[in-house]
Amino acid sequence: MSPDDAAGPLVRPYFLTGGRSRPARGDLELITLVVAVTDRVREAVSPEHARIVRLCTRPCSVAEVSALMNLPLMVVKVMLSDLIDRGYLIHRPPPPATAAPNRELLQAVLDGIRRL
């Protein structure tokens, strides 16, 4: 590990979000998929925002983006929300869980856990 790695991130997370602690969008969950509509940034954005656009050239979940960026989840949600509002990303929220899980499936999962 180099001294630079040990020092931690050079930019504080609150700086990346402009001091905001909540995203403007309330529909970004851990499993929400985001994908870039372009691979080029048309205007001045932070290097972190540009990196997210590049990461999302293939669909990524919000959790994946957070892990790949090595940033806290809420910071990534704020940044993703900004990029969606600016037209760089589109997202697909997970479908609502309306049906009860299948009893047989739950039993099979339970049996598998017991075998561990």
Rank of each mutant, 00 (worst) to 15 (best):
L73F: 10
S2T: 15
P93E: 10
P23M: 08
M79P: 03
V35G: 00
N102V: 09
Y88M: 05
E48P: 00
T98N: 13
P23N: 04
E48C: 02
L73T: 07
A36L: 11
D111Q: 15
P9I: 03
A97K: 07
A63Y: 10
T32Y: 09
H49D: 03
D39N: 14
M79L: 15
V76P: 02
V65D: 08
R12L: 15
R86E: 13
L55I: 06
T98I: 14
L55G: 08
A6E: 14
V11A: 04
E29P: 00
N102Q: 08
R20L: 12
T57R: 14
R12W: 05
S81V: 01
L28N: 08
A63K: 12
D82V: 06
A7I: 00
L80S: 05
G8N: 11
D82I: 02
M79H: 01
P13V: 10
L33S: 09
E48R: 06
K77C: 13
Y14A: 02
M74G: 01
R20P: 01
L73H: 04
R103S: 14
L105G: 03
R42V: 09
R12E: 15
T98H: 11
R103A: 15
A67C: 09
P47N: 10
L83C: 14
R114L: 12
P59E: 10
A36M: 13
I90W: 00
V34L: 15
T98R: 12
V53R: 07
A7R: 12
P23R: 06
N102E: 11
R12H: 14
G26L: 08
N102H: 10
G87Y: 11
E64C: 08
L116Q: 12
L80D: 03
E64F: 03
F15W: 03
V65S: 10
T17M: 03
P95N: 01
A44P: 00
A100S: 10
L55A: 08
P72W: 01
E43Y: 03
P23F: 02
R58T: 04
H91Y: 13
A100H: 05
S46W: 04
S66T: 11
G112V: 06
V41W: 06
Y88L: 10
